[in-house]
Simulated scan of single mutants.
Amino acid sequence: MHNVEQLRRAHALSTIRIESDPSSDAHWCFMHAQQAFADRTYRPCFSPQLLRELRLFARQAIDGINARTAQAGGDIAHIVLASDAHVFNLGGDLSLFTRLIRERDRDGLTRYAHECVDSIHLLHTRLHENAHTIALVEGDALGGGFELALACQTIVAESGVQMGFPEVLFGLFPGMGAYSLLTQRVSPKLAEEMMLNGTMYSSDELHRMGIVDVLVPKGEGVRAVHEAMRRNRRISAARLALHRVRDGAHPVSHAELTRITDIWVDTAMQLGEKQLRTMERLVRAQLRRPEEAEQATRDSSAAL
């Protein structure tokens, strides 16, 4: 990446890689950094460690934007979420879910769910009033991974990527923001259908539906993100003003996200052994080679 330098960081990071471009005030976060895969049990999902490191990235990005704003005024900044793995993100930590549900640890599951919606809400509100968020989806985004992309102002996806909500396979629904975020892009009826049918949609389909903003061929995602940032910088004041307009017209409050995820916790705590075993099969699939894991998810969805 041209003119991009590694951010100095006070904490050792194991699940994300952070880069910044001072010339354009762009802050990049690559989930599932390559060093994470030294652990053969690593799965590219929202582990508690990844959630903690995403919050650290958010703090660093906010500090960086504040420092630049103090020096150069209120030009637009960009926050980009991407992935070093073959997938964008596979969603919630199913291994953690099964353990907490079996142990009847409702408080632990609630804490995890609230941490997830804290991150979703922070991203949806752009972290900073001068920022614009972009999801770069070069690999599959499932469940919470899809919700994370939906929380961004712009979704750039490469052709052929799969996105969807497999939660219904084990008796759950996507409860970390899917309904609130999808209904800003499609009708409530279609949002509910997408949340409950278990279908994996291609990025090409989602682009036609208006959910993916920018669709590019494989390998062109990074270039497309840079082009989107250049366009935004040319209309910086108008883009930031429109953010304020949309914030007032279609707000998604933290209270709304928390209320929904508490319903998700209620539902999760009622799951039986059959649903928990399905979760465990999906966990094993996530540990396989990339093409095997993707096929396992699609086969499960086709069985609905």
Rank of each mutant, 00 (worst) to 15 (best):
H2T: 08
R8M: 15
H11L: 13
H11V: 12
L13M: 09
S14F: 15
I16W: 05
W28C: 09
W28L: 09
M31S: 09
F37A: 11
D39F: 08
D39Y: 05
Y42E: 11
Y42T: 09
S47I: 14
L51V: 14
L51D: 14
L56Q: 10
F57W: 09
G64S: 15
R68V: 12
R68P: 14
G74S: 08
A77T: 04
L81C: 10
V87C: 14
G92M: 15
D93A: 10
D93C: 14
L94W: 12
R99E: 08
I101L: 03
I101Y: 01
L109S: 10
Y112G: 13
A113F: 10
V117A: 05
H124Q: 01
T125A: 00
T125S: 01
H128C: 05
E129G: 10
D140Q: 04
L142F: 08
L142R: 10
G143H: 08
G143D: 07
G144A: 15
G145M: 11
L150I: 00
L150P: 01
I155C: 01
A157R: 10
E158F: 15
S159N: 13
M163G: 13
G164E: 08
F165Q: 03
P166E: 08
V168F: 14
V168T: 09
L169I: 13
L169H: 13
L181Y: 00
R185G: 00
V186N: 00
V186H: 01
P188Q: 02
L190Y: 04
E192D: 04
N197W: 14
G198M: 08
T199F: 05
M200D: 10
E205S: 15
G210N: 03
V212M: 03
V212G: 05
V216W: 02
P217V: 09
G219K: 05
G221Y: 05
G221Q: 04
G221K: 07
V222H: 13
H226I: 06
R233W: 00
R233S: 00
R234E: 06
A237T: 02
A241M: 05
L242N: 00
H243C: 01
R244A: 01
D247P: 00
E256G: 01
L257G: 05
R259D: 01
I260W: 04
V265F: 13
M269P: 03
Q270L: 07
L271A: 03
L282I: 13
A285L: 09
A285G: 06
Q286I: 07
P290M: 05
E291F: 12
S300F: 06
S301A: 09
